[in-house]
Design a protein around this nucleic acid. Structure first.
Lengths: 366, 366
DNA sequence: TTGTACGCGTTATCAA
DNA sequence: TTGATAACGCGTACAA
């Protein structure tokens, strides 16, 4: 890394910088003074108020452009009680499914003059609290939250804006607001069934902490599958981590690996992970321990990261309906923000299994 | 997708909602009225101003908490001329390297009370303009921009805040502001050298439009390598797309593919892409056309997406120093925002080649 | 130690 | 058609 202090400054910019440095920021008042008219007229002109003469309007618009006028959103928001801001609070914005959803909401709503802010709770209830407080202080017009907990403490802070709130992920019966519900239990169930149907009775589960509603649902679905198959499932097969990454998944595998005996301290043939990145941590561990996927370890992910299809082997995973999640959020935002609808929407979305090649069929004859 | 209207509402929330719906938002004024003191005393107490009696301070703090007081950032920002906001404008926030950088900045600066907003320019100069205007209107304390163009029109809008501006990516000599410069030319050079050294004289280049400074640099580096190797390179081997995704990469390959003859309309043995996602589009095309990577097509990516290491075959790529890019930004932010330093920093960062298995050595004996 | 007055940039109401 | 004025919530001199 190379640090140096820039010294050379082309001439044409010196003028510009001096200009803007010395001058106060240009406001409707400074435009008014420049033109010798009242600032309320300037305001009207800028807002295309028909009460101002076309000639004046043009003049104001031109001068504003010339002076480099930038409206002050703070003042606007303070006065009008609308900041044209949407706040999104997700658990992990590095998860590409969530990034996708955020990006699509952001781009779509920008067409209507809204700015979308994103906050990362890092699977932490405490961080979520901090995020909610920050968000609230910024007076957003709408909040989208993927909760870290069913504990109503954080959620209650949002009770004043339930008409302008989407809870994403699990279903929160106690809060009467919009929901974009994804059936993570069904996802876990399908993943587990895929394992069980191919003879994997001993499965490790790697997930984010079970205090997180969506991971809790995921595990509930897994247990339901084991029950239906009449296969016992022990809670100590569940390993959790806040580090939803390749390293996070790897570390859990590594802790279980006994380097002396060259085997895992608990026996299992399959691993169910709560996202594709964790699944790749399993891949990494397998490769490091000289194990083959899927012959020695079968793996199923969650999310359906676009790159997972190209992995060696292609990762069987649960597809998270990211497109529909984004669409659902956008349709609610449109209804509330643009059409002033007041009804409460609940979308229920289903994930589905994408069969690829990371699950070995133990019933298959060799 | 299943849409229904929520009707059931647990009793405990009805009270809460009625409460917050009927009550005005709680401000320092309402706290003052509640307590029968002046709102300026409340303000002082809330800001831990030592001029207020400890007893009063405690009382105010307690009442504020009880009433559910949320400070209004807009009013604060308007008054204090500091919004505690950092704005980041990137070309494609779905690129995991950029998401990583944004997330790390966001989490770090949140510890100091700053909120970081992100905007996506989608490789479009027009969208960048819209983003800059939006950003400016929101009065951020700092702006980080990955420019879409060397055209000074958009950059000039930021000339008033050069002390609070980082330009990321290429080097913009004309603007005297902080830089986090990554040598994309060197990256392109290394990628091309890797191809050429293994005998690939005919290479396709898939990149975002060359109007984007960083892709332009990338191509410059590639050309330098070809020149050094004395191998001719034709500009029509460069294909660009704004769709930096698997599909984007696939579509370009598909357009070149002649389904009748079962070969490409232009001959090449190697493909250099400007990011790993595009490279996977090449993988997809190869698989669809019955071609093998790397035996029939060699591919080198850019970015070093963590999952690329697991691809079939593992993708040779140029590692973008995301950690150092984030660190550099953070260190500038700390210097300017927290330490009030006024010097201009220029970080120069180098990408490096990560050799994996997606490049075939044509010199190798079969 | 507390209260008063003003201003930040804007919009909206009302009077001229 | 335009201008003066109040208000949004907050911070801060300055006065009490």
């Amino acid at each position: 890394m190379n640090l140096c202090i820039a010294a050379d400054l082309p001439a044409q910019y010196i003028h510009l910088m001096a200009d803007t440095a010395s001058n106060k920021p240009v406001t409707i008042k400074s435009i008014a003074k420049e033109l010798g008219i009242s600032f309320s007229t300037v305001s009207k002109a800028l807002n295309n108020n028909p009460l101002v003469k076309e000639e004046t309007r043009r003049l104001v618009l031109d001068t504003a452009k010339e002076m480099g006028y930038t409206p002050n959103s703070l003042a606007k928001g303070l006065r009008s009680n609308s900041t044209k801001t949407i706040a999104v609070i997700f658990n992990d914005i590095e998860n590409p499914a969530l990034t996708y959803i955020f990006r699509n909401i952001s781009i779509e709503m920008a067409n209507h003059g809204y700015t979308t802010m994103i906050f990362d709770s890092q699977f932490s209830e405490k961080q979520e609290l901090a995020n909610i407080l920050t968000v609230l202080s910024r007076q957003p017009d709408f909040v989208i939250l993927e909760p870290t907990t069913t504990n109503p403490e954080n959620l209650n802070l949002l009770s004043g804006i339930t008409q302008k709130l989407i809870l994403q992920g699990a279903r929160y019966e106690s809060v009467n607001c919009h929901h974009v519900h994804v059936d993570y239990a069904q996802g876990g169930y399908m993943a587990a069934c895929e394992m069980l149907s191919k003879g994997h009775r001993d499965c490790l589960v790697i997930t984010t902490p079970l205090t997180i509603p969506i991971s809790s649902q995921f595990v509930i679905g897994i247990k339901r599958a084991f029950e239906e198959y009449g296969v016992p499932f022990h809670d100590d097969m569940i390993k959790d981590t806040c580090n939803s990454s390749i390293m996070g998944g790897f570390q859990i595998m590594n802790e279980l690996w006994d380097h002396e005996s060259g085997r895992f301290s608990v026996p299992f043939t399959g691993v169910l992970t709560f996202d594709d990145t964790l699944a790749h941590g399993v891949y990494k561990a397998a490769s490091q321990f000289g194990l083959r996927v899927p012959e020695d370890i079968s793996v199923i992910g969650f999310d359906d990261n676009p790159l997972s299809a190209f992995s060696m082997p292609p990762l069987t995973t649960i597809h998270l309906p990211r497109e529909k999640m984004a669409e659902s959020c956008i349709s609610i935002l449109n209804a509330v923000l643009l059409e002033n609808r007041t009804d409460t929407c609940v979308f229920s979305l289903e994930p589905y299994l994408v069969q690829r090649s990371s699950v070995y069929n133990l019933y298959k004859k060799k």
